[in-house]
């Protein structure tokens, strides 16, 4: 077992290949209906956004409440490319990532001078401005939304049903998570954390704070843009400005906070749990928002570092107990 762990540590890509194989088998083993596949695809999309948010908020410590706007940019890049150019996912996905990255630059600029609630307000305004711009623009089909955005066809097989589309959303999610881990483990990731802990000390240590803040916003935006494009093509392929409001932003933030800021696994678990809790409370529509809000409040009160912090504490305690146990022997 230890040898296996060592191999995975040396070759992390292997871990993702194993995860890919397991996740490929999940539907045939666990899913009993197509709705579960739809939910799984939504979870994958939410994980991509949460992983991206973790980069800017968890690793780099920058407050952003406008990410849903960039998510909308990704979706509408895909939607408009289909509408005006007839493009499919393989073209719209990279384009959405690139354009969202450019919007990330715009969102990063206020972070040079603002922080905390002021930065939150600036990004919130940015996100809402994007949505309102889309909603009022005939080019974006305004409040009619863009419909019939096609699903990809691979070797003649259309991935146009929830069960098939899962095999598109899941690999994209795995690539995003792998990339997120790579960033965390790189010198850039360490620089992000230095900026988060103390920007002045980081600058004194030779880290270009502005550059790294910019990079964090851009990388994070690229995740959101990619997720937006995958969402736009999700069957039945319909996007509408109503799906990119502040409520959706709060849901994304809840995933990251619930999972634990700065913990990639926490963000993933947060995205899974929040999406499932939201779904399970669907029949209790009168109390849904109350249950949802209560979950967030209780998490912040009793698990301020989220699930990630809880897991960290468990491992630290276990390590401490093992060491003290060995010492006492």
């Amino acid at each position: 077992m230890d040898k296996f762990k060592e191999i995975i540590r040396q070759y992390p890509f292997l871990g993702f290949i194993i995860a890919f194989i397991i996740l490929m088998l999940v539907p045939s083993v666990f899913f009993t209906d197509l709705y579960q596949s739809h939910l799984a695809s939504l979870i994958c999309i939410n994980i991509i956004v949460a992983a991206g948010l973790n980069i800017v908020k968890g690793f780099c410590g920058q407050v952003t409440v406008g990410h849903v706007g960039i998510y909308a940019v990704g979706s509408y890049t895909a939607g408009c490319m289909f509408l005006y150019l007839g493009s499919g996912l393989w073209l719209t996905l990279p384009a959405a990532i690139l354009i969202a990255g450019l919007f990330g630059v715009a969102f990063a600029i206020p972070s040079f001078r603002l922080e905390g609630p002021y930065l939150a307000l600036a990004t919130l305004g940015g996100g809402e401005a994007i949505r309102l711009f889309i909603e009022n623009g005939d080019f974006f089909m305004s409040t009619y939304g863009i419909s019939n955005i096609p699903q990809p066809i691979i070797f003649g097989v259309p991935f146009d049903t929830p069960d098939k589309y899962y095999y598109i959303a899941m690999p994209v999610m795995l690539i995003a998570v792998y990339f997120s881990f790579s960033v965390l483990r790189s010198s850039v990731g360490r620089a992000f954390m230095a900026v988060r802990e103390d920007p002045i000390s980081a600058a004194a240590s030779g880290i270009n704070v502005k550059k790294h803040k910019m990079l964090a916003f851009v990388l994070s935006a690229m995740f959101a843009g990619g997720a937006g494009a995958v969402y736009a093509h999700l069957p039945p392929g319909y996007i509408h400005p109503n799906n990119y409001t502040v409520i959706e932003m709060v849901t994304f933030l809840a995933m990251v906070v619930f999972g634990g800021l700065g913990h990639i696994w926490g963000g993933i678990i947060g995205a899974i749990i929040i999406t499932i809790v939201y779904d399970l409370t669907r029949p209790l529509y009168e109390y849904q928002l109350f249950i949802f809000g209560l979950t967030i409040v209780l998490t912040i009160l009793f698990m301020p570092k989220g699930i990630g912090g809880f897991i960290d504490k468990y491992f630290i305690d276990r390590r401490f107990k093992t060491k003290t146990g060995a010492a006492s022997k």
Partner: peptide, 23 residues
């Protein structure tokens, strides 16, 4: 009778339709 709220949001309406149809 199975009643879901879609909040007048297409994303929720699609999820509800999928759930009602397949689950």
């Amino acid at each position: 009778l199975i009643l879901y709220n879609d909040e007048c949001k297409s994303e929720k309406g699609v999820a509800n339709a999928t759930k009602l149809a397949y689950q």
